[in-house]
């Protein structure tokens, strides 16, 4: 859907421009939800690189998200680092953790990979929860200041534009990445790993790099999350974050990038609006997993694809 055709790129750009133009006129509540959707969109798109394009089902994205968020929290509140050093260090730390975990996880295949990434992420959660001298444990770290960049990020609309800007950068970077020879090789590995190996591609290195890139995007999302929320707790990197990221990708449609963001948006908005009227959100969330797998194997983007295919065949018939 977002695979190099100019029309698709145009559509996505148009949607982003409309979003930027309309948001100032929307209620602040909606603006906050959009901020959340964009942040989780970055997390989910990073996972899509790994799951959709490379075929590696990671259940540990919360780890790098959490490392990014906690790095911001600790560096700004305890050491009073400025914005740029904080962000650079936080992203480097997420990448470093992904690089260490990747060394172990890439050795495993299929469901082993899935279980391993989950168990490793739980180790990071355990540190956030128990290493109280560093993380303040269950209480979390409060009072993370919004960055000072010459305009007031304490207003939600400015924060929205800032995060939209970062989102567009991430989307652009991922778009270039998946359409590069590197990205095409990842798809090749997903489809037929042995053949790529035989053709002389370094399969391990490609997977490993994809793993680290995915961790970096999760880290960026974590950094934004910490700045947006002003506090972090161990809950921010619990398993359900990883598991929800997986649903966002599956719901939107794997290997589409924008699909992951649509999935993130659907979940963020549904959760908030449903919770106003009904306290049993996990029932709906659980049902969404089951429904998506049984009835939407290609995700929401798959529906659009089906319509377009039908339209094209009708045109041919004429």
């Amino acid at each position: 859907m977002f695979s190099g055709r100019p029309r698709a790129v145009f559509t996505v750009l148009l949607v982003l421009v409309v979003l930027a133009a309309v948001t100032p006129f929307l209620p602040e509540y909606v603006c906050i939800l959009l901020i959340q959707a964009l942040i989780f969109g970055i997390l989910a798109m990073g996972l899509d690189l790994l799951l959709g394009y490379t075929g590696l089902p990671s259940l540990g994205q919360a780890a790098y998200f959490g490392v990014g968020a906690y790095a911001v929290a600790i560096l700004t509140t305890r050491y009073e680092f400025g914005f740029f050093p904080t962000v650079v260090l936080a992203i480097l730390l997420s990448a470093a953790v992904a690089a260490i975990f990747g060394l172990i996880a890439i050795r495993a295949k299929g469901v082993y990979f899935l279980m391993l990434t989950l168990a490793l992420a739980m180790v990071v959660w355990g540190l956030a929860w128990r290493w109280t001298s560093l993380t303040d444990g269950d209480n979390g770290i409060t009072g993370i200041p919004r960055p000072e960049l010459g305009f007031d990020l304490n207003s939600y609309i400015n924060l929205f534009y800032f995060i939209l800007f970062v989102f567009v950068l991430c989307l652009g970077a991922l778009y270039v990445l998946v359409n590069s020879p590197f990205g095409r090789t990842l798809v090749g590995i997903r489809e037929r790993e042995e053949r790529m190996q035989m053709l002389g591609y370094n399969v391990w290195l490609h997977k490993y790099l994809a793993f680290i890139f995915s961790g970096i995007f999760a880290g960026i999302a974590g950094v934004l999350w910490a700045y947006y929320k002003n506090f972090v707790t161990p809950d921010d990197l619990f398993i359900d974050v990883s598991v929800e990221a997986l649903l966002m990708v599956a719901l939107g449609g794997p290997a589409t990038l924008v699909g992951a963001t649509i999935g993130a948006g659907v979940i963020v908005f549904l959760r908030n609006y449903v919770s106003i009227y009904y306290s049993g959100w996990p029932y709906i969330l659980g049902a969404m997993y089951i429904f998506t797998i049984l009835y939407l194997p290609e995700g929401l983007m798959g529906i659009a694809r089906r319509f377009r295919r039908r339209a094209e065949t009708e045109k041919l018939d004429e």
């Binding site: 089902p57 469901v111 899935l114 598991v243 997986l246 649903l247 599956a250 049993g280 959100w281 996990p282 029932y283 969330l285 659980g286 049902a287 969404m288 997993y289 089951i290 998506t292 797998i293 049984l294 194997p297």
Partner: peptide
């Protein structure tokens, strides 16, 4: 898909 279905049940049983 099997993993996702069982995750769905996880949330339902949790609530």
């Amino acid at each position: 898909p099997q993993v996702m279905i069982t995750v769905g049940f996880l949330f339902i049983i949790q609530q």
